[in-house]
Design a protein around this nucleic acid. Structure first.
Lengths: 195, 195
DNA sequence: GTCTATAATACGATAGAC
DNA sequence: GTCTATCGTATTATAGAC
């Protein structure tokens, strides 16, 4: 029992995390609707009943996937906040993240944008949860802009930056061309530098 | 027989057009994957076999829907070309189209962007056809920019404008807020005016 | 060209043994 | 917590009468 309390990750939690990570990747690559429960079963190497032991429905898996995305990005932002003092350089780090993931973006689009776009059409209940991913970036960007001296404009400037990034992701995905991403992120960097 | 040749639209063509228009709306509102064949049956008021008489598969319906979109937008562009002499004012008409459709965009996103995003994930064969919608706008915008004196930059500026429009559509859809669209299109208009 | 019945399969979800 | 078998439904598509 002591051992159990000391160990941060139990076996069950590890299994659960494996399911979530498999589903996260599948949902990203094929979309939520196009990923079947059996796809998750096959990719995870587990059995159907085993997965249903952790999640009552496929929708619940998506909820966990969204929370995992949130945790991932919060980790990234915490790292930026820790390592980079200048808020403008932090915003450039955000753009650098996009260029660093250019091949994935060209193949599957933006993980948070494509998810919200899919769910926004006829699963608004779930899209409301996925929207938190946009809020996370919007608020973090706005906070950096406040640090830079922008006050009233911070919120709208943050959405502008986020929108530009989304537009770049869509174009890159549609044309599956990372070169387009590089051209456009260059202009977005210039926009940030002029702030 | 003479009568048949003189009539531009036969009964069969009218039925076919009805199917395509129903499917176009359903695909836009709910996505291609989430729209079942039965949904199209119900919305069209026809019978299953009747629809299968015109289209062998659901994918074929999508092909026809994409061609309908192409025809719709070609019609719009032809109208702009006819009525507006100044190429810069034509680009502003393009942006004005976006603001004019703000409520649909907030509810369902951009019809061509969301379609390409969905198909780009695991139906690349169909996305290749849907990409023609992006090409249509890209080429039309680039042609206007050439008229304005831009030569080498026309292609990349066209993709920039298209990307910005897509980004605005995504943000508007995610937050289901037409006000955001108005703010951002205002900035995009300013960008065009500065050209 | 219009209509109905149904095939064949994939889906999410459940039951219950171990 | 691990595994298998199966239910009920929805799916795309076909067959064939009218």
């Amino acid at each position: 029992m002591l051992e159990k309390r000391l160990k941060a990750i139990t076996k069950g939690e590890k299994t659960r995390a494996g399911i979530v990570n498999c589903a996260k990747q599948l949902f990203y690559e094929h979309g939520y609707g196009s990923t079947s429960f059996s796809d998750i079963v096959d990719a995870s190497g587990l059995y159907r009943g085993n997965i249903y032991h952790y999640f009552k429905t496929k929708d619940e898996i998506l909820q966990a996937v969204i929370e995992q995305h949130l945790a991932d990005f919060r980790g990234l932002m915490a790292q930026w906040d820790k390592e980079i003092a200048d808020p403008k350089l932090e915003l450039l780090a955000f753009i650098h993240m996009i260029t660093g993931r250019q091949s994935e973006l060209a193949e599957y689009g933006c993980p948070i944008g494509t998810l919200n776009t899919e769910l926004g059409k006829d699963r608004r209940d779930l899209q409301q949860a996925a929207r938190a991913l946009f809020d996370l970036f919007r608020d973090w960007i706005a906070a950096r802009l406040v640090e830079m001296g922008y006050r009233d404009e911070a919120a709208s400037l943050a959405l502008h930056l986020l929108g530009r990034a989304q537009g770049i992701a869509v174009i890159t995905h549609v044309y599956q061309d990372a070169k387009l991403l590089q051209q456009e992120t260059g202009q977005l960097e210039a926009w940030v530098n002029k702030l």
